[in-house]
Design a protein around this nucleic acid. Structure first.
Lengths: 241, 241
DNA sequence: GCGATGCTACGGCCGCGGCCGAAGCATTCC
DNA sequence: GGAATGCTTCGGCCGCGGCCGTAGCATCGC
């Protein structure tokens, strides 16, 4: 049963505010330096160093040295999925807390871009990602339920038509049977509704970057939809934005 | 973005050893009294009371009073899924820790039954559940990948033949398209391989109890496979145990 | 009514762990 | 070589939070 202590210890690692901020910042799948992570956590570099060492040793983070920099990233998709799960539950916690402490919820202009479109580990999130998922659900191209999800045959045809590589390295091939590719619902933080994650979400995201439909906004997880992207995605997913 | 503090706070709630033990004990989906939970956590009742109040207020637990007892259970499937995710990551943590501290991993006789068959929130787990999943995968009745899962049409036929109610209350109906019912892979603690969870897993588990194929072992999450169950399940899932 | 049981509320003790300053090692640039 | 940058290690401060003892409130049994 694997000592219950490892269970508590893992949760405890995420439970510290400073470490939680670092992990949240790494949720976009990129690798950041210790200094950058110290900054987002609002702590001194030497404190961050200790945290990062613990997270790495516990297997939550992976580190690779490059010159005099050390880049830290989430160790695996399993870690990202765990963090998603915690965030999902934490979002509902707001209900009870709202009465207690006035959650500022300062929705600054920067957050606007974040709410609209951002990366979530290896796939897209935000209003636009939810809208894309909605479009596909409406047309029966994908099934999304809290307990699982599946790309239908027509959905596979649709995505391939967009240039999405469903059989690429990122997409774990179906063990057998119809060449169905797996996707997973991921509860959107800001929208509180599911968008598409998993192999399908990753492949779709990759295509959006490769075709220049979206590009990263410097220094944040938010992404901008380019004019070309607005055209292509709007037409493909029936978006009226 | 919902204050990152709620995120850390949620993880922190799970991160305390006493609370973690309580939550782990509740992972079988049953409701336990405060005294029982205090016992599994190894703390005094008044300490447990405080923990339970916090967990309930945070929305991780739900409580219902019944006479002078108060039964606590996990508030939702989302919470159970979050805990699963943490356990999954915690299991891999063993690799790094094994060198540091000799994890006793006392595999007592009671654990044997636990490893063989137990409940995991609302579905079956353990060697037998993994074997059942393997059998279905081998015959193309279900797809299980780390990122998602789906019951195939032949799988639905197979389970209905066993008497599993796939369209019941537990199974969220497919939003549209072929009447596919959703299932989700759940990494087995002891086997480190996926078994079937989600609506399909819950329905299958329910059938196993209803038909008397398995029954709970008092005071533990382990379940025993009855002679009738050995016969029925062995035949249906090609088990040689 | 009285006592027993299950649970909760309050106070005080105490120890774990986060935090930073100072110092030390590695790498890069000039 | 010397200085600057990026990161880590060590030591000590300090505060948050878990723990239980005592006491108080509900429910059940007689």
């Amino acid at each position: 049963m694997l000592s219950t202590s490892a269970f508590a210890e893992t949760a405890s690692l995420v439970g510290d505010p400073a470490r939680a901020n670092m992990l949240a910042a790494l949720m976009d799948g990129r690798a950041l330096t210790a200094a950058e992570l110290a900054h987002v956590a609002g702590i001194a570099p030497q404190t961050a160093s200790g945290h990062l060492a613990r997270l790495t040793q516990a297997g939550l983070l992976a580190m690779e040295r490059q010159g005099r920099h050390r880049y830290h990233r989430l160790a695996s998709g399993a870690v990202a999925q765990m963090l998603e799960g915690i965030m999902s539950v934490a979002a509902d916690l707001g209900g009870a807390d709202r009465a207690k402490r006035r959650t500022a919820t300062v929705t600054g202009p920067r957050d606007q871009a974040m709410r609209y479109a951002r990366t979530c580990y290896d796939h897209l999130a935000g209003r636009i990602a939810v809208a894309m998922a909605d479009g596909m659900v409406a047309r029966g191209q994908v099934d999304l339920s809290p307990d699982g999800g599946a790309l239908t045959d027509s959905g596979a045809v649709f995505l391939r038509g967009l240039g999405v590589e469903l059989d690429g390295a990122g997409a774990r091939a179906s063990s057998r049977g119809g060449g169905r590719v797996f996707c997973r619902p991921c509860l959107d933080w800001s929208e509180r509704r599911p968008h598409i994650a998993g192999a399908v979400g990753a492949a779709l995201c990759q295509t959006c970057f490769a075709r220049g439909w979206v590009r990263r906004i410097e220094g944040t997880r938010a992404v901008a939809v380019t004019p070309a992207g607005r055209l292509a995605l709007g037409k493909a997913f029936d978006l009226w934005d």
